[in-house]
Write a protein that binds this DNA or RNA. Sequence first.
DNA 1: CTATTTGTTTATCC
DNA 2: AGGATAAACAAATA
Length: 265
Amino acid sequence: MPELAEVAFYAQKWSPGLGQKVSKVWIDAQSRVFRGADLGAFADLSACEFRSIQTHGKRMLFGFSKGVWLSGHLGMTGKLSTEDPELRPFAKHDRLIITLESVELIFNDARHFGRMEVVEEASDLPTFWSKLPHDVRSDLFDLVYFKAHLSRRPRANVKALLLEQSVCPGIGNWMADEILWRARIDPRRTVGSLNRSEPSKFYQALCEVVEDAMRVIAPDWGDAPDSWLFNQRWKNGGVCPRTQKALTRETIAGRTTCWSPAWQK
DNA sequence: CTATTTGTTTATCC
DNA sequence: AGGATAAACAAATA
């Protein structure tokens, strides 16, 4: 489920634990969320102080003392929460529980599509994290940078490009549809078919959706306003908020895509 | 029992 | 080579 702003929302769920020391770490060792990870390294979180939270696209990074980092991804169904260790029983689909002084950090993931991994590197940031492509919220993700991606990939479908995490880290299915709708671009088009003025509109729409999502969803998962496509996209009989005409749904770039044929050309 | 899902990775084909 | 497509992962929901 989670895209850029939902990931930011969940990552902050662990903030009540900041400044506290780890007393216990439990993992569901069978879970696929630890695929490729060194399970033994989770024990190294013990006695570390939980110090920082950050996100990049859909990735999350939690910093601990002694150069220990926890890197994570929520996949489709991952969720983070903090709970009172005295009150909260073990729940179905809990995959990782880090017990601190007064709270537990919980990672719960029904479908195991998420990921958690311990990275040990005594530096300001792990090397892999510093090398990620520019986040869509970064000042470096500017029009020139975006256009450079577009000109490199003329034959790519516009929606497929938005969904590529190496190009637009954090954009997922609903944001991609929202962006194309606001830019008035038909999701079936290729990047190379964009006319002279469309790349800027495309970029503007992307920035607006990113800003709106971060403002409305990231702090407390607020409801999307009816001026967005969001509230109409899965509704039977949903209509375009701009034209009041019927929306269309079709699989594009492997994902169910919703758009307004009367509005997007 | 069927089809669906706000994600990612891998294989395969053209 | 780049791009499209399907499958795999796995569980809930309708």
